[in-house]
Every structure is written in structure tokens, then in C-alpha cells.
Simulated scan of single mutants.
Amino acid sequence: MNILFVADPLEVFQIYKDTTFSMMREAQRRGHRIAACEPRHLTWRSGEVVHAVIRQVTLTGTEDWFRVDATVTRPLKDYDAVIMRKDPPFDDEYFYATHLLEQAQREGARVFNRPAALRDHPEKLAIMEFPQFVSPTLVTRSADEVRRFHAEHADIILKPLDGMGGMGIFRVGPDGMNLGSITETLNHHGATTLMVQRFVPEISQGDKRVLVIGGKVVPFSLARIPQGSEVRGNLAAGGLGVAQPITERDREIAETIGPLLSARGLLLIGLDVIGDCLTEINVTSPTCFQEITQQTGFDVPAMFVDALEHAVEEDTTVL
């Protein structure tokens, strides 16, 4: 296959942990051809198909980890698979990129994850479809609603809907210290929606990343354990990543949500679970492939490329 990765600049990849790199490496190992571009390289001219300035690359296995074999301008539909792996934030430019990718899809490109599904499943709001798995949660702009929620649950977490890597997450305990100030910071005096959740004390045991690929559950999660006085387990916030077998509750959550979202065009999702509670559904560029593979020996990139090959073959059969 010819596989195009739409991602951040290759030059900024931290290949010792980068999930997109691990996908590329496994794909090349199987003989697939690899190409890459950034969302800013996508172009759609009226009356023409969506195309991009694309680098055809070979992974070298050396310190200079990739070699550019050619730079071409080519329609996205010419590739067997287009994998959208641009990291958050899901800002205006990400939103516009999904529309260009959706047009490419109409022209015949096979895009994973499906662009419309990326838009339809905001990573924090998506959990609200599954109330049986979440801790009490409120989505609001209203400071009064936040105060009532705190009065009911005493120990709460507040977070922006567009945060990533633990950015902008606050905990407010029973004393309510700084609740007003934190709410004003996150909702911009009522102009911005935020999420409030009852604090789940099992965060001390880790914020687990449970991966679902092609509707099937990876049998190990990565528990991201907060360090020191930090309440956030995110690796970007200094959390320690420890791979472990998924629990029965993890499996129940993943086997309920995974096939449903897979049918909507989400080949890869990452579920965040604290204790028994689902806290987030990651769809843009879920990570942790390398950490789980290195610590357990379970080959997550191989499972992903298996699923990609199957999805492309199935789509070709339908066409």
C-alpha cells in the first residue's frame, strides 16, 4: 500500500515514544510505502480534487531517522490510505482540515479516522453519550451551576473542553478555595463552556489509557500515575506510565464503546479510565503504542496495521 500520514512536522517527532512513528515503522517493515504531509499542505482549488505537497519518505533506522526520497504534489485519493494524525488542539485549522479530508474522501480517498467522526466526537464531550460509565459530570458556562455542582459533590475537577495533556485542569476540594476564580478563568466570565466532574480518588493508581483498534480492545492499558503533589497523570504533565493488563471494568467499557465508534469510522480510539470511570474518548491522535509494546511485548503497532490493512481491503471490496 501507499500510506499518507497527515501529521505534525516529522522534524519534531520524539521517535522514542511517538505513536505515529511506530505506525510508520511497522508499515514500512511490511513493505508499504510511506509519505507524509502537514494539514497546512492541503489544498483544494475549485473544480479540482484535494491535493497536497507531500514528502515520500524512508525510515532509516539511524539518528537522522527519515530520508526524503521525493517531494511531490499529488491528490490524496491516489493513496491507498490517508491517516489523520495531527495532534490537538482541535482548533479552527484542525476543523478546516477535516473538511478538506472529507472532500478527499468523497473523491475516493480512504481516510482514518473518518473526518466527520473526528468532528462528531469531541474528546471530552463524547463521554456524555455513555453516562453509565462516567462519574457525575456537568457541562456548562454557568458559574451558578458550577457552585451547585460543588455543593453537591464537594471534591471536584474543572477542565476546559479544548485542553490537552492535562492543560488547564484544576481540583477544588470541600473548602471551595478559589472556586470562583478558577471558574472565571475557565469560562471567561460566562463566554466559554467548561466541564466539571466529581473527583475520582483512584487517580492515585493512574489515569489508564485503554486502546481500541478496529473495534477490538488492546489487552493492556497504560496507567499514567501522578507524581508528587500533582493531581494530573498525563505523561505531558510528568506522570509515570506503567503498562498493566486491562481490568474487567476496562474491558466492559471498551467492548461497549469500541465496536459502536468503529462502525462510525473511528479505526483507533483511546479511552481514558480512572478507577471504574470513563473520563475521555481520544479520537484525534491517541498515543501510548510504544510504552505498552516496550513494557509488555504486545505489539500494538502490528495490531493497528493489521486493522488498517483489513479496513482498506474491505473498502476496496465494497467499491
Rank of each mutant, 00 (worst) to 15 (best):
F5G: 01
D8M: 01
L10V: 07
F13C: 06
Y16Q: 07
F21V: 09
S22A: 12
R30Y: 08
I34K: 08
I34W: 07
A35W: 05
A36V: 02
C37R: 09
P39S: 06
T43H: 11
S46F: 15
S46D: 12
A52M: 04
R55M: 05
L59A: 01
T73A: 07
R74P: 11
P75T: 09
L76D: 04
Y79V: 05
A81H: 12
V82W: 05
M84E: 09
P88I: 04
P88V: 05
D92M: 08
E93H: 07
Y94D: 10
A97H: 05
A97M: 08
H99T: 00
R106G: 10
A109C: 00
N113L: 12
P115W: 11
R119L: 11
E123S: 15
E123D: 15
A126Q: 15
I127A: 07
E129A: 14
P131F: 15
P131R: 14
Q132S: 15
V134P: 03
P136I: 11
T140H: 04
V146E: 01
R147G: 08
A151R: 01
I156R: 00
I156W: 00
I156P: 02
K159P: 04
G165D: 12
G168I: 06
I169F: 00
G173K: 00
G173S: 11
G173V: 00
L179A: 05
I182G: 00
A191M: 15
R209D: 10
G214A: 09
K216R: 12
P219D: 13
R224E: 14
R224H: 13
E230A: 15
R232D: 03
E248F: 03
A254T: 02
G265H: 04
L267C: 10
V273M: 00
G275F: 14
T279Y: 13
E280M: 07
I281V: 06
F289Y: 11
I292M: 04
Q295G: 12
F298Q: 03
D299H: 08
V312Q: 02
E314P: 11
T316G: 03
L319P: 14
L319Y: 15
